[in-house]
């Protein structure tokens, strides 16, 4: 097993599909895990809710809990009107959460550790906000960039600031998820590498061997702690992505401050 911490992020072409406009198109390991995540989500939910029991079993209770969790988040951030976006928000949450969690399994690829994926999801969110905002409110949607109760001479600056903050949203939204997943996996891999390296030192015996055992135990403890932490991050980042989506959708529903 190679100890290069970056190797886990490599995209491997499993089935080459040819070229489109000079871009190589293939069924990659990333695509495999996207398909796997979607299959897992849909099959899981379908199986869990197949009984439609009045008194839910374990699986159905979990499915209902996830539903209620995202529904409450959306309702609190975007209001009752925001519930029309629920399938979209729930899909986003489940997709990001499942991809993050699948990535925690050793040897599995983490779809969300690629900035292009998170950026595409963020653009999808902001695109939805912009399109819905203009369709629903027309030019009134631009009121989002004009804060009320600001002196006239300050207004141009405020508009520029609001515009920049709006445009930076997809960037911060995508980078936050990408960087968290990337850094977490790199850190895990590096600590795991230390265990192997210092474990090798321990095998040499003698004074350096004792040092090696002590030295390997430390990164092992760190790796265990980091693994638990990464599970938390995997969930938390999916939640953060979702709640920010809800807040941005709120702007599309209620432009103007």
């Amino acid at each position: 097993m190679a100890a290069n911490p970056i190797e886990q992020f490599e995209i491997k072409n499993l089935i080459p599909l040819g070229n489109i406009g000079g871009q190589e198109i293939a069924f990659t390991n990333s695509a495999l895990f996207m398909v796997g995540a979607v299959a897992l989500i849909t099959l899981g939910f379908t199986a869990a809710t197949a009984g439609r029991s009045l008194v839910p079993g374990r699986a159905q209770a979990a499915a209902e809990m996830l539903y209620e969790f995202v529904a409450n988040t959306l309702r609190q951030s975007a209001g009752e009107k925001g519930m029309k976006f629920f399938p979209f928000v729930f899909s986003l949450f489940m997709f990001v959460l499942t991809c993050n969690m699948l990535g925690m399994i050793p040897g599995f690829f983490t779809v969300t550790s690629h900035v292009i994926v998170t950026f595409a999801l963020a653009i999808l969110v902001i695109g939805t906000v912009i399109v819905y905002g203009f369709v629903k409110h027309g030019t009134h949607f631009l009121g989002l960039f004009v804060p009320s109760g600001v002196p006239a001479w300050l207004l141009p600056f405020m508009v520029v600031i609001e515009l920049i903050s709006f445009l930076s949203r997809p960037i911060s939204l995508s980078l936050r998820l990408f960087a968290n997943m990337l850094a977490g996996h790199v850190a895990l891999k590096v600590f795991a590498g230390f265990i192997v390296a210092l474990g090798g030192l321990a095998a040499s015996g003698g004074m350096t061997g004792v040092l090696g055992v002590a030295g390997a135990a430390l990164p092992l403890a760190m790796a265990v702690a980091l693994t638990a932490f990464e599970f938390l991050v995997a969930f938390l980042q999916a939640y953060v992505f979702t709640i920010l989506t809800c807040i941005y959708l709120h702007d599309a529903l209620h432009p103007g401050h």
Partner: peptide, 12 residues
């Protein structure tokens, strides 16, 4: 790799 990733992300 962006082309493949975007395509499969869109599909899935």
């Amino acid at each position: 790799t962006f082309g493949s990733q975007l395509l499969w992300l869109a599909i899935t």
